[in-house]
Design a protein around this nucleic acid. Structure first.
Lengths: 209, 209
DNA sequence: GAGCATATCTTGCCGTTGACAAGATATGCG
DNA sequence: CGCATATCTTGTCAACGGCAAGATATGCTC
């Protein structure tokens, strides 16, 4: 399926997306060049155009791939806490995809494939939020929980990647993310997976003295 | 100070930064062209190089300007809640600066002027967090509060701008931001500026039943 | 106020890029 | 086998970033 390498590449589309991930990790999405991707894949400079049309077209496909990878990564976490950690982990380890996904002016963010893929990853998060015990004095209900959870985890990941955090944040994004998420949800999310069972919220130290 | 417009422009540096804000708001930072900025300012295509060296140099100055504008915007909010709202408002209204500031591969994010300006905006946030009543069971203390506050507000702003939020989030970013921030800090931040006085945390409905 | 150093801006050029057009080659289907 | 189509190549163009060399204005010194 892969090699062949005569006049026809055989799997150029996939090869270009893989090359894009490498190139973007090296120099960021702004410096991405279609001609460079073509060189990496061993084809002529005009070959990518057939598969993706133009540069935004390629990045649109790349973003779709990213949202699907994110949905898959989130599904490995069984609790909301671990799902948040997985989100941060995805942002740090798959930098290229993450950066493109949230740079909507680089690609066609309103393309139907993008909307669908983004909806899929959002649905995974939603399902975990639905499993939460209802929060006290919740202003927006489950939707508000999801919005707050997504915001804090996304913001933390972005700031971490941008190097905008002070040194006190430590050097392990997963652990730092856990602390931040616990601060949002408190006992509602604490220790579910560390002990394999949820700690009783009433005994939690989060209750004000 | 401004016009003159002979061989010498008179205030080209400022004019180029202003043109950059307009151009980026129109087409995003990736499509920014030094030659286009020069045309907008009415100078030759090589004039910008004298002031900023190269493209990353210009965006570095632009990011510094952004961090200082952010620090000024945050200072208008007197409570942590309103400061968070001001952060989101800044991200939405000054899109160009915000996008560049948090795209570190577009400029020299480790340049000393950038580090200093970023530190100034961070200090403003810190001062507001310090005014908070101490949280119950705080894992990371005030530093953790600041990190969580910054993360949730930054994440919300980014997601809002990226159009990644579901429609339920509404169409007023300021009000939606208020809801999200309250969910993080609960009674510790609620209604401080609405009533001009903090509600007593002990009576707050956030205490688990 | 004359002369010189320097800051600012222009013109001209080069290599690279994204996009397009036209042609070559492989693949699949009758 | 023969043709339609998908895939890839070669060639070209305008625009861009960056550099070099020259022109013009500004400020400083005497």
């Amino acid at each position: 399926m892969t090699g062949a390498r005569g006049y026809h590449h055989g799997d150029l589309r996939r090869a270009l997306l893989a090359a894009a991930a490498v190139a973007i990790e090296e120099s960021g999405p702004a410096a991405l060049s279609l001609r460079d991707l073509a060189r990496r894949a061993g084809v002529s400079h005009a070959a990518p155009a057939h598969h993706f049309g133009d540069k935004p077209g390629l990045l649109t496909a790349f973003a779709v791939e990213g949202f699907d990878l994110l949905a898959a990564a989130l599904q490995t976490g069984d609790s909301l806490l671990e799902m948040g950690v997985a989100y941060v982990d995805f942002a740090v380890r798959r930098r290229a995809h993450f950066e493109v996904m949230y740079s909507p002016d680089l690609y066609r963010a309103d393309a139907p494939e993008v909307v669908a893929a983004r909806g899929r990853s959002r649905a995974v998060l939603r399902s975990a939020v639905a499993d939460l015990p209802p929060g006290p004095g919740a202003v927006g209900g489950a939707a508000g929980d999801a919005l707050a959870a997504w915001s804090i985890v996304h913001g933390f990941a972005t700031l971490w990647k941008a190097g905008a955090l002070p040194d006190e944040a430590g050097d392990d994004p997963r652990e730092a993310a856990r602390v931040v998420i616990r601060r949002l949800f408190g006992s509602r999310v604490a220790d579910v997976d560390a002990r394999g069972q949820a700690a009783p919220p009433a005994r939690s130290p989060r209750t004000p003295a």
